[in-house]
Simulated assay, not measured.
Amino acid sequence: MVVLNVSQHRKAIERMYTDRATISRYIEIQKPSGETVLTPDPIPVYTDQPCYLSQTGFAKNDQTEAQNDIQYEAKLFIAPELIIQQGDIVAVTRGSTGRIWVYTAGEPFPPYSTHQEISLQREGYA
């Protein structure tokens, strides 16, 4: 029987993390009146987290004469102890390019002991 050394396996996976992610979400706050509302803007809950962004399929091209819609899914590999929720805003700084791509997190798959995989959706206009 082969026993997996989780610590070494996790280190091997994390060596592939060439990107950085900031995860933000709307937070419930209580107004002085006692009413509970969501913050007007997403609040960062994790910043500059090492990660790896992977493409899961090619972008769908919905170009019309008026606009060119961007729509595709990606997968984020990141540390298992981070709690990422469906609907979180995930801004990924891609490797050495420094370009930032913004996604919405899908429902998280239960984390592995070495990493977690989060489905991301990107929608916008080109």
Rank of each mutant, 00 (worst) to 15 (best):
G87A: 02
D41Q: 10
Q8P: 00
P50W: 05
I43M: 02
I70W: 04
T39V: 06
P42N: 00
G34E: 02
Q67W: 09
A79K: 05
T97N: 12
E123R: 11
E123H: 12
Q116N: 03
A66V: 15
Q86W: 01
E117T: 06
T93C: 14
D19T: 05
Q116C: 06
P42V: 06
A79W: 04
G87Q: 03
D88R: 00
I13D: 01
A126I: 03
A21M: 00
T56I: 15
Q121H: 09
N68D: 15
F58R: 10
I27S: 04
I100C: 04
S7D: 08
D88L: 00
F58K: 08
P40T: 07
E35W: 14
I27D: 03
Q30P: 01
Q8S: 06
G124I: 02
A91S: 15
Q86D: 09
A74W: 02
D19I: 02
Q63D: 15
E14S: 11
P80R: 07
K31V: 09
T36I: 15
T36H: 15
Y52C: 14
N61F: 06
S24A: 10
E14I: 02
I78D: 02
A74D: 12
D88V: 01
T22M: 06
R15C: 14
Q63I: 11
Y72K: 07
A74M: 11
A21D: 01
L120I: 03
Q30R: 08
F109D: 15
I84Q: 08
R15T: 14
I84N: 01
Y26Q: 02
I43Y: 01
Q86P: 04
E73V: 10
R15P: 11
T22D: 01
G95C: 05
R122A: 13
P108D: 10
F58H: 07
D62K: 14
Q30T: 07
T47G: 00
K60G: 13
G124H: 00
I43G: 04
S54M: 15
A91D: 10
G87R: 07
A12S: 14
S7C: 02
L53D: 07
Q49T: 11
I100Y: 00
V102T: 10
T114E: 03
G57N: 08
T18G: 09
E65D: 13
I78K: 05
S96Y: 09
K60N: 12
Y52P: 00
D41S: 12
Y17R: 13
H9G: 07
Q63M: 14
T104Q: 14
D62A: 13
R15Q: 14
I29K: 10
D19G: 05
L4A: 09
P44S: 04
R10A: 09
S24M: 06
Q86K: 10
T47Y: 07
E117N: 12
T104S: 14
